[in-house]
């Protein structure tokens, strides 16, 4: 196997920022699909609010990615004019919504990871990253509190809700492994003290997730197989449809101002 040259800090930063911003963009898109369709009014409000937080964070992460990349691309250019293979989000966030329990389980597994990532990033040696992380962390602290609470209530609710939540966990678990796999870019940023190595987040994540799931009377699946590819631009079939919808106006009316 050929060994790739060590990436520069700059390239690693752009890659990392795209990964971080694409995660928030795609998850924000997914949960915004619920708008007006959730089980109860309070959930419509909460999900729209979470989507709003995630889209706001996307503007910051992708904005900084474009700035550091130095090719004149804005956050909007990056969101609306890249094709699927250039997206760097984890596969977890592009999973279709399923039922409301599935959406919440996906959110919980992501939030728990997002919280650990942002907490570590507040210590980044790059002050721009530390600043965005600190702002995002305020929002994500609420996201994890809310999703963990709902996981417990639904896991330990009725027999039906328990089954739905266990099914969701069984289907989503194999998409969590990718969040903790590092590559050469991650090595460079960890070395430079700019971002934590993904593997370093796993123990804390697993502790929070295990505790919540246990309280929710849910069982972590025994299978250890994990899907991966999103961070390298190899996605599931779903991302193409998300982009076809999200990018429609920018693609159909190139160069227009909105």
């Amino acid at each position: 196997m050929a060994t790739a040259a060590t990436p520069s800090v700059n390239d690693a930063l752009v890659e990392f920022l795209l990964r971080t911003g694409d995660n928030t963009l795609i998850l924000g898109h997914r949960i915004s699909e619920w708008c007006g369709h959730s089980p109860v009014l309070e959930e419509d409000i909460a999900l729209a609010n979470s989507a709003l937080d995630l889209i706001g964070q996307t503007q910051l992460w992708l904005g900084l990615a474009g700035e550091i990349e130095g090719k004149g691309r804005t956050a909007d250019n990056l969101a609306y004019l890249r094709d699927a293979a250039e997206f760097r989000n984890a596969l977890l966030v592009e999973r279709p919504n399923g039922d409301f329990g599935f959406t919440l389980m996906r959110q919980f597994l992501f939030d728990a990871w997002h919280f650990e990532l942002l907490t570590a990033l507040t210590q980044s040696k790059d002050p721009r990253i530390a600043e965005i992380a600190a702002k995002s962390l305020k929002e994500v602290s609420y996201h994890i509190e809310r999703s963990a609470d709902l996981i417990v209530r639904l896991g330990d609710g009725t027999a039906e809700s328990h089954k739905r939540m266990q099914d969701a966990l069984d289907q989503l678990w194999s998409y969590t492994g990718e969040l903790f796999i590092g590559d050469a870019y991650d090595d460079v940023l960890a070395e430079a003290g700019i971002a934590p190595h993904p593997a370093s987040l796993k123990d804390k994540w697993l502790a929070v997730v295990s505790r919540t799931l246990s309280e929710a009377t849910l069982k972590i699946p025994s299978s250890t197989f994990m899907h991966k590819g999103g961070k390298r631009g190899i996605h599931t079939e779903h991302l193409g449809f998300i982009l076809a919808e999200m990018q429609f106006l920018q693609r159909a009316y190139p160069g227009a101002t909105w």
Binding site: L25, C35, I55, Q59, L249, W258
Partner: peptide, 21 residues
């Protein structure tokens, strides 16, 4: 919402629909 043409327009529309709820 899922087809809003910019991130800012998407955020504004989300905020608006959230207000309606």
């Amino acid at each position: 919402i899922t087809r809003a043409p910019t991130l800012e327009r998407k955020a504004i529309l989300l905020a608006k629909v959230q207000d309606e709820a």
